[in-house]
Design a protein around this nucleic acid. Sequence first.
DNA 1: TCGAATTTGTGCGTATGTATC
DNA 2: GGATACATACGCACAAATTCG
Lengths: 250, 250
Amino acid sequence: MTFGEQPAYLRVASDLREKIANGSLPPHTRLPSQARIREEYGVSDTVALEARKVLMAEGLVEGRSGSGTYVRERPVPRRVARSGYRPATGATPFRQEQAVEGARGTWDARSEQEEAGLEIAARLGIEPGDRVMRTRYVYRDGGEAMMVATSWEPLAVTGRTPVMLPEEGPLGGCGVVERMAAIDVVVDNVVEEVGARPGLAEELLVLGGVPGHVVMVVERTFYASGLPVETADVVVPADRYRLSYHLPVR
Amino acid sequence: MTFGEQPAYLRVASDLREKIANGSLPPHTRLPSQARIREEYGVSDTVALEARKVLMAEGLVEGRSGSGTYVRERPVPRRVARSGYRPATGATPFRQEQAVEGARGTWDARSEQEEAGLEIAARLGIEPGDRVMRTRYVYRDGGEAMMVATSWEPLAVTGRTPVMLPEEGPLGGCGVVERMAAIDVVVDNVVEEVGARPGLAEELLVLGGVPGHVVMVVERTFYASGLPVETADVVVPADRYRLSYHLPVR
DNA sequence: TCGAATTTGTGCGTATGTATC
DNA sequence: GGATACATACGCACAAATTCG
C-alpha cells in the first residue's frame, strides 16, 4: 500500500513510539505481538516486524524470543571510574575496570600469543611482528555483560615471568599495575583515549544490544618510565554507562 | 538453511566488514549489489538485504537509492586533550577546550542569565530557581565547528564581580580556572563524565554531520574546595575527535 | 531527449526454528 | 506437550532514484 507519505513501517513505529513516550506503554510492559500489530494496524507481517526493528534499533524496546517485545527502562547511566580515585559512593574497586558504582563484578578472560599488527605495534612502541600476549575479557556486572576488552602486552616485558598470563598464577586477575610491580616494572602513567561509534554486531551480541547501538571505546595504554607496557581497547555500551574522570587541576 | 551457528546475514555482514577493514573495499567504492551478494554467497534476497542493513547500522556503509551501497570514509580522529597535561605533540593549549593537536581555534560565546533547572541545580549543589549564568559556546578549528558547549555558573559565586560574564572584561575567554582565581576562588578539582549518543539534529546542524552521527558528551564540573563553581556540557562529534586523558598512576 | 537497465527501499505471503510460558 | 512469540529465511513484486547508452 503506497500512501505517497511515510513508509508503513515508520507510521507504525511512530505510533508505538508515541505510546511509549506518553506513558501509555510504560517500561517493562509488552508491546502488542507481531500478529496483533498486523491486525490492529491492518498491515502485513513484514511491516509489523520492520516497525519493531526500528524501535529496537532506537533502544526503546527489546525483543525476547518466545516471550514478547518489552519496553525498556530508561536506565540512569552508571558511572565507571577511570582514574584511580574512588567514586563517592565508597565502592571498593578491586580492579580498575571493576570500579563501577555499587557493582559486584566478575569476568572471563582468554589469553593467546600472537604477532603484533601495525596498530598495536605502534601503540606499544615495538616492531610489527614482535610477539605479544593478547587477552580478551568479558566483564559482567551482576550477570549481565557490561564491558568487553582486549589487552595486549609485549612478551619482551612479561615473557618468561610469572605474570606472563594475566589471569594465571598468584597474581591472576590483579590488574596491570600490581602484576607489573611484581616483576619490578613500575607503572607510573596511563593514557586513555575515549572515542565512540556505532557498535559492531559481534560486540553487541555479547553486550546485549542490536547492531548500531552506540558504544564508547577507550584506548588505554600503561607506561613505565615512558615506555608502553600494556595497551587495551575497552568497549562499553553508551546507553548504560558513563566514564567518570576525576582530575586534579594544575 | 539452518547452520546451528551464526545466522547467514551475520556471516555475510562479517565477510563484507572484513573486506572493508582490510582495505579490499576502500572508502567510496561500491559494495556488491544485493543481487550480486545473493549470487556470490548463495543466499536469499532477504539475507543480502539484512546483511547490508547491519553494515549500515554500524555506520560502515551508506545506501544510495538507485545507485548502490558505498563504503563510508573514516576520518582519522584528532585528539582533544582533557587534562592539565600537554599532549606529547607539543601543542600549546591556551585554553582547555583548545588543546587540539595542532589546532588554531576560535570560538563564539553568548551568555544569558536564567534560573537553574532541576539537573543543573543538582550539578551545582544549589537550589532549583537560583540564578545562574548560562553561556553557549561554539568552538571552531580552522573554520569548521568542532565542539559545542553550554556552561552554567552560579551567580552566587560570580555575581557582582568582574568575571560574571565569561567572555567580557580583561579576563574574557581566559578559562574557568583563571577567571575564578581572579576572584579568589581556587579551583582544585574537575570531574568529567563522558557519555555518547546519537547526535541531535540541531547539534549536528552546527557540527556539520548527518542525523544519526554519534556524539560524545562530556559533563564537566569544576570544584573549589569541594564546592561546584562551574558545570558544562561539551558535545563533540565522535567520528572526528577523541578525548585524551593523561593520568598519573597512584 | 528518451528509454532501458540497474539498484535501493518498501512491502507482501509464507515457512521454519527455537525460546518462553 | 501445546500454544504463543520472536528470529531467521525464502521468493516475489513494485516504486523511485540513478546510470548509461
